[in-house]
Design a protein around this nucleic acid. Sequence first.
DNA 1: CATGAATGAGAATTCATTCAT
DNA 2: CATGAATGAATTCTCATTCAT
Lengths: 201, 201, 201, 201
Amino acid sequence: MAIASAARAAGKQKKSERTRQLLLDAALRIIGRKGYTSATVDEIVKEAGVSKGVAYYHFKSKAEMATGVLDAGLGNMAAEFKRIVEEASDAPGALMAMLEFFAAELYDNREFAHFLMTELWRDGRVWSEAMRDRLQELIDIITAQIARGVEEGSLRSTLDPQFSAVSVVGMVVTDAMYYTDLLAKQSFIDHIRAFAHHALS
Amino acid sequence: MAIASAARAAGKQKKSERTRQLLLDAALRIIGRKGYTSATVDEIVKEAGVSKGVAYYHFKSKAEMATGVLDAGLGNMAAEFKRIVEEASDAPGALMAMLEFFAAELYDNREFAHFLMTELWRDGRVWSEAMRDRLQELIDIITAQIARGVEEGSLRSTLDPQFSAVSVVGMVVTDAMYYTDLLAKQSFIDHIRAFAHHALS
Amino acid sequence: MAIASAARAAGKQKKSERTRQLLLDAALRIIGRKGYTSATVDEIVKEAGVSKGVAYYHFKSKAEMATGVLDAGLGNMAAEFKRIVEEASDAPGALMAMLEFFAAELYDNREFAHFLMTELWRDGRVWSEAMRDRLQELIDIITAQIARGVEEGSLRSTLDPQFSAVSVVGMVVTDAMYYTDLLAKQSFIDHIRAFAHHALS
Amino acid sequence: MAIASAARAAGKQKKSERTRQLLLDAALRIIGRKGYTSATVDEIVKEAGVSKGVAYYHFKSKAEMATGVLDAGLGNMAAEFKRIVEEASDAPGALMAMLEFFAAELYDNREFAHFLMTELWRDGRVWSEAMRDRLQELIDIITAQIARGVEEGSLRSTLDPQFSAVSVVGMVVTDAMYYTDLLAKQSFIDHIRAFAHHALS
DNA sequence: CATGAATGAGAATTCATTCAT
DNA sequence: CATGAATGAATTCTCATTCAT
């Protein structure tokens, strides 16, 4: 359920899969900390505790490692968003649940927030197209719930659903990077909830 | 002769200063477009139309060029923020004027917004400390106005001034990067105003 | 299989070590010929017949290559000096044997003598501290034998052991650089012996 | 009389000549400290307190500055050596006087000693040929006096005049670099005299 | 004579990727 | 599957020299 969780179950997987996870986790940490271009494959394999040869056995290139990280992270989030939407009784409930989950995830994975912020909007990256689609998927899910809330009358009618969705995402990512060291997790989530509540209702 | 030589000196000064500015402008464009690490000094000097040597005559390193760009940009913004606060009659007026200015600036300088997003929070950069202070200055100014509005009763009392300031900044920067190509400038600003109005009031 | 893989590892080890040695040898020749600063890494790797990349795989920097050269050279000499001292029956015998060895070494490795002369006393070099210690070790060994000779009465009592040691070393290095092309090896050594004999006895 | 003395009389010279001297003095210090290749023209002109333009007005190139320094220094020494030989009554007297002067000069101008040691024997320098001739002149003068002493019977007959001259020069230069910080000037000179006396008599 | 900005060739270093073992 | 040495293109930075003012 969490971004880096797969590795925890690695004991049961074959060694190959485990190595792959070690590399993805290491890539998340290193790239999240230093940015894609500044991160070196040497650092990543050292952090993962494997040789460079295996890294290139599992991934065709450094870019593919990065893609793998974002893909896994955003994929998990999209899945959870969908689950939340299905289970929620109304739009505001779905929105708040998604926000809470999103905020909690980014709080726990500051490096992933970093990664998102610093690399996703960048041109000239092999993965940017595909990854933007991944993020767009998240935004679309949020947008749909806002639109639904507006239609239902549970959210204020003047809201532009997509603009609001992007704004809320930007807000959460920024706050996560700013407040991870300054607020406790629950307090952080409460702040997010309160602010979003007023912005949307 | 004093006058003539002063004029000569001024002319030189101006030419030298102009070169420096050409480099800063070029650095903003290239780094904003590709990120600090991917941008090369070769590209920057080519964009500026000067030789590589002058770049290192005016700036000690590539990092110093980048620092110069962020410093100038954030410095300008802080100055304008202060001017706005002085001239505004009340807190909500100051906030909306600052937001409008901030949104307009980022809309016009998507590259700067990009640069801000991608490089500011990164570890291991020589400038991150100084630049974070610069950004903090902006946030502090906004925070102060929100606090004032809360005290005056013109903004809702449950707002956490600093958290709200950070959220609003994050929202504007993110929206600017997302919507520069999708919305006209005035429409973009209107969206920002509307969203912020509800979030804060 | 353990044996086979150990052999494989040894083979690799040897190949890697051989590359390192090729680089040290090439660095000695090039730096000895042109001086540290004028020598380029390009020249060194070309002389060694390897790529520039490996040079930086084996050595962190050009300075470290140079350190490696001096370290190995002075280390060998110190080892031989110690061996000579152990085997010699008296101080004059030890001194003459060391001198002969030292002269022969420098005669054969004019480039090393050059390197020693031109780089060792220079400020602002990363290695100068460590390398001065290395040279000091040689001087200390010679000093100790002169002191012993003075005590035993086999060398003249007015000698200042350390000053004499430094003088003799300076003399041999200078002569080596001057006479390598002008005198045959044995004749060179004989000259050194004769001069030192009179200076010390 | 001293190597860097010309500048002291600069007040009476025209400004142009004074500037030239400032540059030579600065070049001696900087190159003596860091070596020819590591020393930069920027450092030299900064040390001299003049602009880069004037430096290239007075000297065609960096190499010419260095040549100027060595030329002046060795020229002064050769002149003094000749004066000493003329005034001395016998060979040993001339030799001791020259040695004393040489030792005193190098003690006072450690940077010049450095310069001599690190740059003179180096290949690939524009000035090395001419400068070697300059140094050779000094060695020749010493050699001639040793030869005279051997003929006269005031020095031991087994001495090889030139080899002895080179050895003594190497000894003094090395000792100067080693002992400038460790011995007082007079003590340093006494040690040199004593050692040379025994080596030659 | 003086200044200091500008030039550009070249030097050190990095790093994604390959490949022999 | 695994290792880690090797490659070489790309990148940052330096610096002697020139030249407009």
